[in-house]
Design a binder for these strands. Structure first.
Lengths: 199, 199, 199, 199
DNA sequence: AATGAATGAGTCTTCATTCAT
DNA sequence: CATGAATGAAGACTCATTCAT
């Protein structure tokens, strides 16, 4: 309460502060879970006052929403980059690259993925349709089929199943422990997926 | 508040009371989510007093655990029954039956499945290994391969991927709305899965 | 936190607890004002836990509403009793009794009156119409006019003006300090009021 | 956010800024109540930054005090003007003008009056003595009595009662809705008041 | 077996005010 | 004169759990 105690305002540009708060929140959410993390802990970790949090986010849920958007953006960038890099190869090669990128990408991000995709209440399953990875994969499959490289019944549903198969495999491996033979996993997944779309 | 209302003997056998509480809890959890449902609401729905809840369950989490066990038991029964009924057919036919049973079974139970498999907070991913459906499917795949009917790299991982592909497909369809062409969905899923394990 | 610390529940019938909480709240509201009194202080004064407060009231505002109802009931009882006791006298005498009862009643209750009639937000002026004292007084005036004892333009508006005149006079006297010549005040008020309705 | 939008010099003379802030505050206070209005809302409505508010007012209460002073000044001007205009008439006529002016003046300002006269918390009832309208009316009544036109027991208390009767009547009419028969109301009030002071 | 009043730590959120720029 | 990011004390309200009856 003394004059000495009162810290002078340590002003930063809003984007920086917001990012710092999101970083702190993400770390804590991953450690202890969303519900078990209090706003008090977030602001302490970010070294700001309680009120500062509410300068940048409407509610605690709001941070999670922000984290989700950030996660999706970053993941899409990875996939797009890998896809572009392999553009010259065969369709099957490009498909393998797709799935491998996803496997590796998720291996590094499964906890975060689960965090941001945790369904808040029920029903909002509709959100899943928005999954931009599935959307991209669907387009890719359709192009490949037009080129005679792939075969399947329903492009979108196939993309969904490929995505979930991959995701489940990664999940399962991680369940065994943190040390995973990444190449072996990727090999098994791509083999599975290739079969499922081979013409 | 009438004389008739109160003091009516409300004693019931423990198993019945427990079941009624679980039913009430399941309904509310599915409607509003686990975290958003309070014990107060559960006991109100089950028409018992607060204390009665704690006569049958240690904590709120305990009910969810009970719900999970009940769900798995019921689901396994369905799968086992269908599998037994198709035991005389070809391996591919039996495989189709497997996947179809899952599709139909999950179509009716996806929200419940998601509820009981919701990961609480930490990386209790180990739990997933316990999924008895995957265990059963793994055995089935191995037998089929021994009989020369199937081909794949890793039995367990393949079972995991098949399971997740199926689950994802059902999820995705449900996202569009409650009315689903069940046969068409089952057909697409079985086609996908059959490709993935064909020798 | 020790076992010794934990007080055993000191259960009381809901009506008693509710009354005790209202008493504590009323005392604090009168001392420090409604806004300046926290629920924490109320429960401390009533010697119960925070949660107990919310067992009996939905919100903090809810207590004030309860206080208002209680106040009105008690005030009406006083007026009705005095009115009944004077029923045998002349109309003018009964009118004097009316106003005197109000003057004395308010002298003892002005702070409480102001507390419970403090307008929360705007507009809810409509509430004032519900003032049962004014309603009673209106009826009384009409009966007296029918008997040829009173004269005025508009019964209800006259009742309102009499009530407010009385109330303002009491308020004004109280502003001078706590020691008031009650008889002199009552005399001045009844003189004023009698003139206003004399035929 | 365009270049044009920002950095436009926003400096204004202090009196203007202060007035604008008071206008914004008064509008919001009347809409939502004093307590329910935040400084943040005031500065937004006045289109200035938070800090600017504290350049012109010490605290939030300070604005309300300013509003009160402004209100009283304006109201007194109206009454004085009307009184001066009627100076040539009879005492009773002048009295009618007095009360009519008040009725009409309050009809347009009751919400504002209630706002600025809302007693904060303690029994700062002493403030009411300062009511300059009552002071003026007291003087007027005394002069009229000296001239043999009025009769009453206590000049000040009579002024208080007249004022409160008038105020209550206006309040009551407003409670019915925004559309009021102003002339009828004024008639009823002046009739009531005239009786109360007639010799 | 059943009750339900009581508990109290814990949570999110608000907002008047300050001050470096 | 003006700004607006930062502060942090304070407050209302929730809810899983207990236990005397």
């Amino acid at each position: 309460m003394t004059v000495a105690d009162r810290q002078r305002p340590r002003t930063k540009p809003p984007e920086i502060r917001r990012e710092e708060l999101m970083d702190a929140a993400q770390r804590l959410f991953l450690e202890k879970g969303f519900a078990a993390t209090s706003v008090a802990e977030i602001v302490e970790a970010a070294d700001v006052a309680k009120g500062t949090f509410y300068l940048h986010f409407q509610t605690k849920d709001d941070v999670l929403a922000g984290l989700k958007i950030r996660f999706i953006e970053q993941f899409c960038q990875k996939v797009d980059a890998a896809n572009a890099a392999a553009a010259a190869g065969s369709w099957m090669h490009r498909f393998d690259v797709w799935m491998e990128t996803c496997v590796f990408g998720y291996l590094d991000a499964v906890p975060l993925h689960d965090l941001v995709f945790q369904q808040f209440h029920p029903a909002k399953r509709g959100m899943k349709r928005a999954n931009p990875i599935v959307t991209r994969l669907t387009s890719f499959l359709l192009e490949g089929r037009d080129a005679g490289a792939f075969s399947f019944v329903d492009a979108r549903l196939t993309a969904v199943m490929l995505f979930n198969a991959m995701h489940g495999a990664v999940d399962d491996c991680l369940a065994d422990g943190p040390s995973v033979d990444r190449q072996k996993l990727a090999g098994t997944v791509t083999d599975f997926c290739r079969r499922a779309v081979s013409s």
